[in-house]
Design a protein around this nucleic acid. Structure first.
Ligand code: SF4
Ligand code: SF4
Lengths: 137, 137
DNA sequence: CTTAATTACCACCTTTAGGTAGAATTAATT
DNA sequence: AATTAATTCTACCTAAAGGTGGTAATTAAG
C-alpha cells in the first residue's frame, strides 16, 4: 500500500531540484549525496525522467540535469505515470476492478473516498506547490 | 499503491466463507474454484490464517476450514497484519516517515486524510459487515 | 590534445512477491 | 486394515522490484 521506490525517489529528486533552481544543471553526485539515494539507482531514474521529457541532461564536464519545463507545469501524477504507479479509476482495494454496480462489496463505498482523495492529491499537485515549503525531503 | 495479492485473496476468501457459514468446514478445492484463486497458493494462505488463529482446519476426509471465531469479531486489519500489509501511523507517501513537524513537505497534509480514511476502513470493518452484502467477490 | 567530469547504456545481481510440485500426515468411510 | 479425501510441510520455480558494475560517449577546462 505505497508508491514504488522509483516514484518516491523521483518526487523527492524533482522537489529538491525545484527548490534549488539556481544550481542548475545539478549533477547526479550532488543529488545522490543530498538525498541519500544510491547513485547508480538515481542515474537510472534520472534517465527515465529525461526520456519522459521532464528533465533535460547535459553530458560532460559541468553537465547535469535541469528541468525541461517549469516545475509549476509538472504534475505529480505525470511522474507516477512514468513508473506505472498512478491510481487508475477502476483500481479496487481487492484487486477485482469493476464489480457489477448492483453487487458491490462493503468495502466498495469506503474505498472510493480515500481513492479519490489520493487521485486528487496526485493529479492536482504540481512540483512547485510541493517544493514550496522548502524543506529537504 | 495496493494491497498484496495475499491480503486481497485472504479477505475475499474469508468474506466468502462468512457468507456461507452453513457449509463449514469448507475445503480448499471449493474455495479455489469459487473464487478463482490458484489452489496451491490458496492453501498456503489458508495455512497462514490457521497459524494466526483466525481459522481452524480439520484434516482428512470431510475436513476443511472453519472460523476460529465469529466473523463479527474478525477485523480486516487483523488480516492485513498477517501479511504485513496494515498501514502504519508513520507511513509516508514518500517513504520517509516522520519528518520534523516544523518541516513537512506539501504532500504531508494532503496524505493524512486518505491515510486516516484507509486506516479507519481497515480497522473498523469486520468480516461480518463486509460479507453482509452477500455478493461473491 | 589530454584529462577530468559528467551522463548513457547494457548487463548483471539480490530480494521479495507470487506461485507450483510433491510427499507426508490425518481421519472418515468402506 | 485399506482406501480415499483432505490439510500440511518442505522445497522449489518465476517474475518483478530494487540495486550495482563497468564502460562507452560526451564535453569543458587546462
Ligand atoms: S465491489 Fe468490492 S471487490 Fe468489487 S470493485 Fe468494488 S471494492 Fe472491488
Ligand atoms: S513531510 Fe512529506 S516526506 Fe515528511 S513524513 Fe510527511 S509526507 Fe513524508
Amino acid at each position: 500500500m505505497q508508491l514504488s521506490k522509483s516514484s518516491q525517489y523521483a518526487i523527492r529528486i524533482l522537489a529538491f531540484m525545484a527548490n534549488h533552481q539556481e544550481m542548475q544543471p545539478m549533477n547526479a553526485n550532488k543529488l545522490s549525496e543530498e538525498l541519500l539515494i544510491p547513485y547508480k539507482f538515481l542515474t537510472k531514474i534520472m534517465n527515465e525522467l529525461v526520456k519522459a521529457d521532464l528533465i533535460v541532461s547535459i553530458r560532460g564536464r559541468e553537465g547535469g540535469y535541469s528541468f525541461a519545463k517549469p516545475p509549476s507545469e509538472i504534475i505529480i501524477d505525470e511522474i507516477l505515470a512514468i513508473f506505472h504507479d498512478s491510481i487508475k479509476d477502476e483500481q479496487c482495494v481487492l484487486g477485482i476492478g469493476f464489480c457489477n454496480g448492483m453487487c458491490k462489496c462493503a468495502l466498495h463505498d469506503q474505498w472510493m473516498e480515500p481513492k479519490i482523495l489520493m487521485q486528487k492529491m496526485f493529479r492536482e499537485s504540481t512540483l512547485e506547490k510541493i517544493a514550496g515549503q522548502g524543506c529537504k525531503i
